[in-house]
Design a binder for these strands. Structure first.
Lengths: 341, 341
DNA sequence: AGACTTTTTGCACCCGTGAGCAAATTTTCT
DNA sequence: AGAAAATTTGCTCACGGGTGCAAAAAGTCT
């Protein structure tokens, strides 16, 4: 190796020491140059940055994280990839987090048993926080999490949980579902059927309960109800076929209130193409989440939009705050009326 | 702090030293216990694991990565969240990678200008490889990548690139499109129109060119062609409206060959609901990727399925191999015929 | 049992950076 | 100019674990 070698040979390891030598300062000055709000003169920073540029140096975040005990890294645990809404959430979260200087580890929680090992996975990378956006995180899993916990914050996003040591950032499901129920009633529907998703003990959506309670109180009747094992349009299609197939028009509910759009879309497909009814003529449909296809020409699905971006911004605030007590922060969205109901 | 403190107080930092003390061995024996294929007796491993369990110890992968220069971490750069196929790819990749012991950093490349800084981002985490699954990575970006490169491998997934130092893992677009063109011809369609996605200089899909060439050679005519600025159903809808709106039935192409399903689905929506034609009666549609809704009741879209899981398995092989020359590995999928064409 | 081979264990040194303090330098004020 | 205050810089020690070798322990053979 000659001394002339200046430009970074691809793959080599330029460290702060190399830059320090090049710039004629100490290693610590180099590190300070890369740190915002560090105590360093504009002149030396400039000098360092120039040298770093020449050598192709970027600080090693592993070492930084090791030394400072802050990784600026979060783990996103996801298990529910059949729901198109997940793509929206992933996009929003990664965008907002990255803008704020946070990196995201995407962990696919393969199945329920796997949730625990996914948490250990995250622990080993020493993430600052774990964010759960999935459905199969029950109390048991969360308890495991609390045990082997090597991260400061456990955040449930877009869902609320009663578990201790857990932060929830979600839409106010009760308020939202009351809005929907009110909308359904006001539009004159009187024989609703509720299409629910899977039930988990923790991190529960209170949508079904709220709707049922509302309806019973208002009209004294208990609506029909069906449940789907996952937020998957195809599964929803099967359930709706089983429920509504063979019914005459008069036996049909007048509206299908769905726990979210993934279910609603599967239901709409069945209603139109397998059962041959028209929407909203024969039966109306309303969903939740306002996923992209809901606004498309084909579905024109009335839905409820969560302020996902706003929730993500708040998530960043939570990550950046020092305190780590548990709490729940609720947001409010709004109904997006379209043709389907 | 008393000496009685045994169980890990949540958030504290148990290190290999602590476990070593607890198990009555040296720190290195502890680390060996956690390393597969390490030179350690079954007895001491057992002893160590028991102690680790008691204290709630898990090895720190930051430190491991720092010391060994292997992070077992990859960065996934994604920019194209409007395409539902991305969700499938994300699911498959994260699942397969995790099974093989690799963690995934999901980086949302906000826009074209941002691609460079996304790469630096990944570099700072010292990932072992960067995987690109997006559309806006042009030669310039890739050149930047090659420059500031702190990772061993740059892999373009589900797309091919001519860039040097770049590994491509993709479906054989030429072969695939020839299959599709053959299928279209055999089904008797004679006035196709091609709906293409955005063009990028590098990492190009050769689908359009292949289809055009095939058709010209076979029938001597050059099919109509339209182009959409992103793989987004909504954008596709606009383009198709502009192209086909106002045409009479006889002026219509008899089939719309789409570069992928995201475009096809947007096109189908317009054709049915805005233009009022029937599929495949008035105009047929064929896509690419076989995204979930393609198989749903509503679309029943004929498409081409890529062996994504198989490609992901191969990706793992590439990650695990030592050599880092550039090459391209092509896979073969197959047409999934449905009602739309 | 003694000599030799194989397995297991311990150790020095290194990976690249941060926190916090003391020394050096610059700026400000009288 | 000289002293005090403010800013900048360098340094020690620490973060947690991997590499490769040497010492120790265990197993094998005659």
């Amino acid at each position: 190796m000659t001394e002339i070698e200046r430009t970074a040979p691809a793959g080599s390891n330029i460290t702060a020491d190399d830059v320090a030598a090049e710039a004629g300062v100490s290693r610590w000055t180099v590190n300070r140059a890369f740190k915002k709000d560090a105590s360093i003169s504009a002149k030396s920073r400039e000098k360092v940055m120039r040298a770093a540029e020449r050598l192709g140096y970027v600080p090693d975040l592993r070492a930084a994280s090791l030394a400072s005990d802050r990784s600026h890294l979060v783990a996103l645990l996801v298990d529910d990839f059949a729901n198109p809404h997940k793509l929206v959430m992933l996009e929003t979260l990664t965008r907002v987090l990255r803008r704020a200087g946070w990196d995201t580890l995407l962990v696919n929680t393969l199945d329920k048993e796997d949730a625990g090992s996914a948490l250990i996975n995250a622990s080993q990378r020493r993430v600052d926080a774990v964010i759960l956006i999935g459905i199969q995180f029950d109390d048991e899993v969360l308890k495991t999490a609390a045990h082997a916990r090597r991260f400061r914050k456990l955040i449930i996003f877009a869902r609320t949980s009663q578990s201790p040591d857990t932060i929830s950032i979600a839409v106010d499901d009760v308020k939202a579902m009351q809005d929907i129920a009110g909308y359904v009633a006001k539009r004159g529907y009187r024989r609703p059927m509720f299409l629910a998703g899977p039930r988990t003990s923790s991190a529960h959506l209170k949508r079904k309960e709220t709707f049922m309670a509302f309806w019973q109180e208002r009209f004294g009747t208990v609506p029909d109800c069906a449940s789907v094992a996952a937020y998957d349009p195809q599964l929803a299609a099967e359930v709706v076929t089983a429920e509504l197939g063979g019914r005459g028009r008069s036996e049909l509910p007048d509206i299908l209130v769905c726990e979210n759009d993934a279910l609603a879309i599967g239901a709409m497909d069945v209603i139109r193409h397998r059962l041959g009814w028209r929407i909203p003529g024969d039966i109306a449909v309303i969903g939740f989440d306002d996923i992209p296809p809901a606004g498309g020409l084909n579905y024109q699905l009335s839905s409820y939009r969560q302020p996902v971006a706003e929730m993500a911004e708040y998530l960043v605030e939570v990550l950046e705050s020092r305190e780590d007590r548990d709490f729940t922060r609720l947001f409010e969205g709004g109904i997006v009326p379209r043709d389907s109901a």
